[in-house]
Amino acid sequence: MTNVAKIKEPAEQAPIPFTRKDMKTENDVRWCPGCGDYAILASIQKTMPTLGVAKEDLVFISGIGCSSRFPYYMNTYGMHSIHGRAPTFATGLKVSRPELSIWMVTGDGDGFSIGGNHMIHLLRRNVDINVLLFNNEIYGLTKGQYSPTSEVGKVAKSTPYGSVDHPVNPMAIAMGAEASFMARVADTDAALMTDIFQKAHEHKGTAFIEILQNCIVFNDGAFVQVSDKKQRNANQVLLEHGKPLIYDDGKKGIALNTDTMKPYIVDLEANPEKTSDLLVHDEKDATGMLCHVYAWMRHPEMPIPVGVFRALQRPSYDEAVNAQREAIIAKEGRGTLEELLNDGDVWDVD
């Protein structure tokens, strides 16, 4: 009986290189024309060949929803599972097959409504999985009901008089679960997406990526401030490790009022000397203090933070589980069936 279901040693063969084209399946992509999902798919297909992972070691696992059709469009191993539960399948797979590179695709309903519980536990356990949250603030596949991330007042099919339901903040929940890696990006920002996907892959532990995704049919323009390339610079601030928070082509920056612990905008054109007041991003800060601040920065009062909020090393669950078992085996020896059965009061009858 083996301990893990590993089927080849990692060093046994160098991964055979492949290209973006190899990532495509024969299935027709069936999202609505103009859906933000297309751009995300393209960025993922572009990133995968750059990771140094063998094609057969990539696995995409999703729940239910528009975004969750994703695995059908990736020529990798994939599982389109049930609503909200993708983290559970991904966890079981990663624990038994730690050498696989697992990408989980979910949406705001799948990940934060029906599957909210699993999401929290996935993040706190820090299972080494990359989570792509397609947040479009609406239910697409069930045709246009408000979602747990929809704003109060949202008029949708199930809320003709406007939603009175207070939304969740995915980033704040991720912080509450002590996510070790958090990032945000708009679906139109291909370069940043690719960069974040690569960093997510390198991160050991759960990499949580909120993608602001446009549902052109039911919630068009929900994130227009950042997805529209013309407005983007003025409305988003890119978090870069070790660099001050500057945006709007260097015209503005973000500083923290240490009395109120609230962020404020600094006009750098008027006060260039105040550059030294600006917050400097530290993605490795263990307290996560500033991550909370970033999670609550919202448009239009503040620019929307994008990029890597947090990239902190802490042990991943899959690694810990397997290490513990191997340590016990190393110390006590591999158990045999003979030992198993005889562990207790036994007696012989002749």
Partner: peptide
């Protein structure tokens, strides 16, 4: 309970 079942299925998919 659901996560327990899901994880088992994930492990089965992986070959356990």
């Amino acid at each position: 309970e659901i996560a327990a079942m899901g994880a088992a299925i994930g492990a089965a998919y992986g070959g356990a």
